[in-house]
Design a protein around this nucleic acid. Structure first.
Lengths: 156, 156
DNA sequence: CTCCTTATTGATAATGATTATCATTTGCAT
DNA sequence: ATGCAAATGATAATCATTATCAATAAGGAG
């Protein structure tokens, strides 16, 4: 039931059109999963989730779709240090916006949204400055803190 | 000529001791390269640089050493989206401190240090808040912006 | 200074996430 | 309805990183 490329996606129809030349069932399925999920997912997580209601899906399609969405800034790709990328849809209304706190010993990832407002305010200003100086059209940003979680501080 | 673990490293001797149980020639060589380099390097870059004056070095040793240094927060690991990590020594005096601006189409990476002071000020405050709330001992942070560089904006 | 324990090394094989390939299928403009 | 290019799915290939293991060397004890 694919219609014009991004028509049924209220959030970023124009940029969905920019990312895809054609809307397809696998792509819709992937977008649905990403839109429903509140947390970051690996490509395989997404593959498995889509597979439940669309078993024909191929893993390669998941990677290809994520690549296109990432290049259009519609999806954020995170690396937490385990050599497995995580993806998350970018919501225009900033719902669930958060940054990450990562333990460099055990790999635990904490999503925090405290301080986000203050951070976003700065981000916005820096973005404007960078756009002007380096002539970049900035789509997304990444802020992560690395350190030792409580557990790992104890185990020296 | 290795002495007590981190003795000849003025910068973070105590944390070098924490990272290593023994100081060795390969580790010194890797630290020397990292200290000399002004820019991020991949594991292979480092391997090749060390290899020039210490040809016995093995690639696995480079990875192991970088892992230990990263876990101690003495080295920052970056991922720019090409699935190849880059490493950079953390200087206690904040010399050459910078963040990154990455083109999501062509992968170009710009190091910027404009706005850094303003950013670091916020970082410091957020760090304090996160430390308290989540009981993390924060060692490093990562700030990256993603977008289209001038070139890639033109090529639609 | 020498010995001894054990951390570390280097070579190499294994792993595993991601990408490339290619024949087949499908979206969608005309 | 038709045709062509885009997209798919299966699978093979890639390649950065990690695990393995016998050999080596750091550095504390005596």
């Amino acid at each position: 039931m694919p219609g014009r490329c991004g028509s049924q996606y209220a959030d970023h129809p124009r940029r969905i059109c920019a990312a895809f030349r054609r809307m397809t069932i696998p792509r819709q399925a992937i977008l649905d999963i990403l839109n429903t999920s509140k947390h970051h997912m690996s490509a395989e997580d997404i593959y498995l989730a889509v597979h439940q209601f669309y078993p024909q899906i191929g893993l390669a399609t998941v990677y290809r779709t994520l690549e296109l969405l990432t290049q259009e800034g519609l999806v954020s790709r995170f690396e937490f240090g385990d050599h497995k990328a995580r993806y998350e849809i970018v919501r225009s209304d900033q719902t669930h916006h958060h940054h990450h706190l990562i333990c460099i010993k055990c790999g635990r990832v904490v999503e925090y949204s405290d301080f986000i407002d203050e951070e976003l305010d700065l981000i916005k200003r820096v973005e404007a400055g960078l756009t002007e100086k380096y002539n970049f059209n900035i789509k997304t940003h990444l802020i992560q803190f690395y350190g030792l979680c409580g557990q790992c501080q104890i185990q020296q």
